[in-house]
Amino acid sequence: MTMSEDEPASPATASPDVLRELLLAVAGGDAEAFPRLYDSTSARVFGLVLRVLRDRAQSEEVTQEVYLEVFRQASGFDPSRGSALAWILTMAHRRAVDRVRASQSQSDRDVAYESRSTVELFDPTSETALDGIEARHVRGALSQLSDRQSEAIRLAYLDGLTQSQVAKHLDIPLGTAKTRIRDGLLALRRIMSAEYTRKEEG
């Protein structure tokens, strides 16, 4: 471990431009770029994975898989399609969700795939050690949505449920769950792009 870097750049200070350049440098084979990219993004990646999996050991494994994938696939990053952070977190989220669903199917080997949508490993609304983080988090992006939309999106994205599982969990029709998820995310996109525009102008 490098002592000179014991204060890694926090994601708040690593601008999208810096991350993009780092990821492009990794794609270009720059050996020094990868540790810097890791230091600037790992708290975001690990935080997201940990929230989805709620298991430190598994989250460490998945985080390692994610960064190996980031390294291997870096040349597939297309800056015209989105930010480096979105690209990395997309990989992280998919892997975390794949892991959640694989362990669901393992712990439930005998239940047919189609009928396992009721399986849940935890109650996302229960009190957990993550409550502090959760409370802080909820004040962020999701707090700007209606409670129903925010709940549906949290179950899908942060608990890794499919939209059918969200419907089952909330005991609402599938169509309603789909609508809340879609409208919620579209609303969030509007809110966020308005914020970015405001920042750019200000």
Partner: peptide, 10 residues
Amino acid sequence: TVDLSQGLES
């Protein structure tokens, strides 16, 4: 979706 995990840093 990037905004959804903001604040969860660990």
